[in-house]
C-alpha cells in the first residue's frame, strides 16, 4: 500500500515559539524578506497564527495555530485550477507537490487554497552577502514570479530514499524522514508519519477524540489534523462556516 503522509498538531502544546517557521525557512532555502515585506508578501511555508476565543479583557484566551499546506487529498483545489500542471499529488506519498519550473505565476492556486497556505515569490531570492554558502544543498531556490508552499520537506524524503536504496531496502525507515518543523518543535507538538500505517502515532492521534481538521466541510480531506482539549479551539474549525452561514442569511 502506498504511503499517505500526514501531520497531527497538538495545539495544547504549541507555545508559538516560531521554531517551526524558522526551521522550515532554513531547510527549504526561503530567503529573508526584503525591506518593506509584510505578512501578505512574505513567504512562510509554516505560519503560526494566534487565535483567540473572541472574548474581551480579561476573559480572552488564546491558542497558537501553526498552518501549512494541508495536503488535501480529494478535489485538491490548487491542482484543479493550475493551468500548467505545476501542482501534482504524488500517488506514492499523497504529498501535494509544487513544481516551480512549470509555474507561470498566475496565482490561481493561491486564490483557490482555502487555507491561504501558498505563497508567491514577489522578489528574486536574495541572501546577505556570503550567506548563500549556508543554503541547503538539497533544495533549489525559487525565482521571482512562481508560487510555492510546504511539501513536507521533500528534500528529506529524497535523502531518506537514497539512504534506503543504498542499504538495499525498498521502503524508507520512518525515522529517516522527519520534516524540519517536526524535528525542531521543542514541545513535540507536531507528529508526522504515514496515516495508512494504523500502528503509527500520527494515525492514532488523528483518530483521537480531541482531533479536528480545519474546513473539513469542503470535502478536500486535508491530511493535517489538530488536537485540542479546549472546546473553543475546536470550534475554530467551524467558525468560518458559522460566518459563512451568517453571510448567506444576510444574502
Amino acid at each position: 500500500m502506498p504511503a499517505r503522509y500526514g501531520m497531527v498538531i497538538d495545539l495544547d502544546r504549541c507555545t508559538g515559539c516560531g521554531n517551526c517557521t524558522v526551521a522550515c525557512a532554513v531547510e527549504n532555502n526561503i530567503p529573508p524578506g526584503p525591506p518593506g515585506v509584510t505578512d501578505r508578501t512574505g513567504i512562510t511555508w509554516m505560519r503560526v497564527y494566534e487565535a483567540d476565543n473572541g472574548e474581551g479583557f480579561p476573559e480572552t484566551q488564546s491558542a497558537f495555530v501553526p498552518v501549512m499546506c494541508m495536503q488535501c487529498e480529494e478535489h485538491t483545489p490548487c491542482v484543479s485550477v493550475c493551468p500548467q500542471n505545476a501542482v501534482e499529488v504524488d500517488p506514492e506519498t499523497g504529498i501535494v507537490g509544487q513544481i516551480p519550473e512549470r509555474c507561470l505565476g498566475c496565482r490561481y492556486c493561491m486564490a483557490a487554497c482555502p487555507y491561504h497556505a501558498r505563497y508567491f515569490n514577489w522578489w528574486d531570492p536574495k541572501w546577505p552577502e556570503g550567506m548563500e554558502k549556508t543554503l541547503n544543498p538539497d533544495v533549489s531556490p525559487r525565482m521571482r514570479g512562481v508560487a510555492e508552499k510546504c511539501n513536507f520537506c521533500h528534500g528529506r524524503l529524497h535523502t531518506a530514499r537514497e539512504k534506503a536504496a543504498a542499504a538495499g531496502n525498498a521502503a524508507i525507515d520512518p525515522a529517516d524522514y522527519v520534516p524540519a518543523c517536526v524535528e525542531s518543535c521543542p514541545t513535540q507538538a507536531i507528529v508526522f508519519g504515514d496515516l495508512n500505517d494504523p500502528a503509527s502515532e500520527v494515525a492514532k492521534l488523528s483518530r483521537d477524540e480531541r482531533a479536528f481538521r480545519f474546513l473539513s466541510r469542503l470535502g478536500t480531506e486535508p491530511k493535517v489534523s489538530y488536537l485540542s482539549s479546549r472546546a473553543w479551539v475546536r470550534s475554530l474549525a467551524d467558525r468560518v462556516l458559522a460566518r459563512d452561514q451568517k453571510e448567506e442569511a444576510r444574502g
Binding site: 516560531g18 521554531n19 531547510e27 549556508t134 524535528e183 525542531s184 521543542p186
Partner: peptide
C-alpha cells in the same frame, strides 16, 4: 566544511530556539 543547518543534537533531549537554529547565519550578518 560550511554549516548549512544547526539541529539539536540527537539524544540530548535539548531542542533549540529560533536563535540557535539560525546561529550559523550570524557570521554573514549584514
Amino acid at each position: 566544511g560550511v554549516p548549512s543547518s544547526l539541529r539539536a543534537a540527537s539524544g540530548s533531549g535539548q531542542p533549540l530556539c529560533p536563535i540557535g537554529l539560525t546561529g550559523h547565519h550570524l557570521a554573514y550578518h549584514p
